[in-house]
Simulated assay, not measured.
Amino acid sequence: MTACIDEIIELLSAELRNADPAERRQIENELELALAEREVIWAEQDGRIDAEPPF
């Protein structure tokens, strides 16, 4: 699963380097979300957070 998110992050980073100003903010937002998603995946794998809902 992390390999897929890592690929997405790489693609968004590449797009950001070549983005025109009109697209830049949208790509930055998508990249920020992908990085946060990867952090959650890592935290679940490390046992720092529980993936199960609390109820």
Score class of each variant (00 low, 15 high):
residue 35 L to R: 15
residue 18 N to E: 09
residue 9 I to F: 01
residue 50 D to F: 14
residue 25 R to T: 12
residue 4 C to T: 13
residue 39 E to D: 14
residue 13 S to L: 02
residue 8 I to H: 00
residue 29 N to R: 06
residue 43 A to H: 04
residue 40 V to F: 04
residue 4 C to L: 05
residue 20 D to G: 10
residue 50 D to S: 15
residue 35 L to I: 15
residue 10 E to K: 07
residue 47 G to V: 12
residue 4 C to E: 10
residue 12 L to H: 02
residue 26 Q to F: 08
residue 5 I to Q: 00
residue 43 A to Y: 03
residue 50 D to L: 07
residue 28 E to Y: 13
residue 18 N to A: 11
residue 34 A to L: 10
residue 24 R to T: 03
residue 10 E to I: 13
residue 45 Q to P: 09
residue 17 R to S: 04
residue 43 A to M: 07
residue 32 E to K: 15
residue 4 C to F: 09
residue 41 I to Y: 14
residue 44 E to M: 10
residue 32 E to Q: 15
residue 24 R to V: 00
residue 51 A to Q: 07
residue 47 G to S: 14
residue 4 C to R: 10
residue 1 M to N: 11
residue 14 A to H: 12
residue 47 G to I: 13
residue 34 A to I: 08
residue 44 E to F: 00
residue 6 D to E: 12
residue 39 E to V: 05
residue 45 Q to A: 15
residue 40 V to R: 03
residue 28 E to F: 09
residue 21 P to M: 09
residue 3 A to P: 02
residue 29 N to A: 07
residue 25 R to P: 05
residue 10 E to F: 03
residue 41 I to H: 03
residue 47 G to N: 14
residue 47 G to M: 14
residue 11 L to C: 01
residue 34 A to Y: 08
residue 5 I to S: 00
residue 12 L to S: 01
residue 55 F to C: 09
residue 15 E to S: 10
residue 16 L to Y: 01
residue 18 N to L: 03
residue 9 I to G: 02
residue 45 Q to V: 15
residue 2 T to D: 10
residue 22 A to S: 08
residue 22 A to Y: 06
residue 32 E to C: 11
residue 16 L to E: 03
residue 21 P to Y: 02
residue 11 L to N: 07
residue 31 L to D: 02
residue 33 L to S: 13
residue 36 A to W: 05
residue 11 L to Y: 02
residue 10 E to T: 11
residue 3 A to M: 07
residue 15 E to T: 01
residue 5 I to T: 00
residue 44 E to V: 10
